[in-house]
Amino acid sequence: MKLRRSYMQHINPRGAIADFREVFRQAGKNRWRITIAAMAVTATLFWALTKDSWRVPPAKPQITYINSFPLDRTPEETKAFIEKNQKLKDKVEAREREIAEESKAIYRKLGEISGMDVKKIEREAKEAEAAKAAEAARKQQAPVASR
């Protein structure tokens, strides 16, 4: 059985040192500038790669539990509360639809002023939406393949 020699046994730093001396001599009068620039780049890279953040993680939030419904609330009170919130939700949604329509009207006007065919763009957008909805419906109805 033959023993394997160490990889480090084949490395000789004398050649590397001799090569470094030769390159250093060939650099001429700029050798110190080049050396300082190379050392600065190397030091900057090492500094950037080894920089570590020692920030303290943020404190965990303090949770406050709120019981907003009294335990003795009647079903009628619950229904009234739900209806009130539903009306508020409907008002908010209606206002959001109004705002969306207003912004569409503004963009339509801007498109017309810019010389675009706004009706064609809207028609293409509706067709794309319908195709996307049909694709989603088709995927939903398709049977799931077993693995």
Score class of each variant (00 low, 15 high):
residue 35 T to P: 00
residue 35 T to F: 10
residue 93 E to M: 14
residue 95 R to W: 02
residue 69 F to S: 08
residue 42 T to S: 10
residue 99 I to P: 01
residue 12 N to C: 02
residue 71 L to F: 07
residue 62 Q to I: 13
residue 68 S to T: 11
residue 75 P to I: 05
residue 69 F to Q: 12
residue 8 M to T: 08
residue 46 F to W: 06
residue 27 A to D: 08
residue 80 A to P: 00
residue 40 A to I: 05
residue 112 E to W: 02
residue 94 A to K: 11
residue 17 I to N: 07
residue 22 E to A: 14
residue 15 G to N: 12
residue 106 I to F: 12
residue 62 Q to T: 13
residue 105 A to N: 12
residue 85 N to G: 09
residue 95 R to Q: 12
residue 60 K to A: 14
residue 64 T to W: 02
residue 26 Q to D: 12
residue 36 I to G: 00
residue 15 G to S: 09
residue 110 L to E: 04
residue 86 Q to S: 13
residue 107 Y to H: 12
residue 78 T to A: 13
residue 81 F to R: 10
residue 86 Q to E: 13
residue 95 R to D: 03
residue 36 I to A: 15
residue 104 K to N: 09
residue 93 E to G: 00
residue 84 K to G: 04
residue 42 T to G: 10
residue 72 D to Q: 11
residue 26 Q to R: 13
residue 74 T to N: 05
residue 47 W to M: 08
residue 43 A to W: 02
residue 76 E to I: 06
residue 44 T to F: 15
residue 10 H to T: 11
residue 21 R to W: 07
residue 61 P to V: 05
residue 73 R to C: 10
residue 71 L to T: 11
residue 9 Q to L: 07
residue 33 R to W: 03
residue 13 P to R: 03
residue 9 Q to Y: 03
residue 92 V to E: 03
residue 18 A to K: 13
residue 116 M to H: 14
residue 14 R to G: 02
residue 73 R to M: 15
residue 82 I to P: 03
residue 114 S to Y: 06
residue 23 V to H: 09
residue 104 K to Q: 07
residue 68 S to N: 13
residue 95 R to Y: 01
residue 9 Q to V: 07
residue 58 P to H: 02
residue 83 E to T: 10
residue 74 T to Y: 06
residue 13 P to A: 08
residue 59 A to H: 06
residue 86 Q to F: 13
residue 113 I to H: 05
residue 86 Q to I: 07
residue 80 A to F: 04
residue 53 S to Q: 02
residue 43 A to P: 01
residue 18 A to N: 08
residue 45 L to F: 13
residue 108 R to N: 08
residue 42 T to A: 07
residue 23 V to D: 09
residue 46 F to V: 12
residue 88 L to Q: 09
residue 23 V to K: 13
residue 63 I to K: 11
residue 67 N to P: 00
residue 21 R to Y: 07
residue 30 N to W: 00
residue 105 A to D: 14
residue 11 I to L: 14
residue 45 L to N: 05
residue 111 G to A: 06
residue 114 S to K: 11
residue 49 L to C: 09
residue 28 G to H: 02
residue 53 S to R: 09
residue 97 R to G: 00
residue 101 E to M: 09
residue 51 K to I: 08
residue 33 R to L: 06
residue 18 A to R: 14
residue 59 A to V: 13
residue 54 W to F: 14
residue 79 K to F: 12
residue 96 E to G: 01
residue 69 F to M: 15
residue 20 F to N: 07
residue 90 D to E: 15
residue 109 K to P: 00
residue 90 D to L: 08
residue 105 A to S: 08
residue 28 G to A: 01
residue 99 I to D: 04
residue 87 K to T: 05
residue 52 D to M: 15
residue 49 L to K: 06
residue 111 G to K: 03
residue 93 E to A: 15
residue 84 K to H: 07
residue 32 W to D: 15
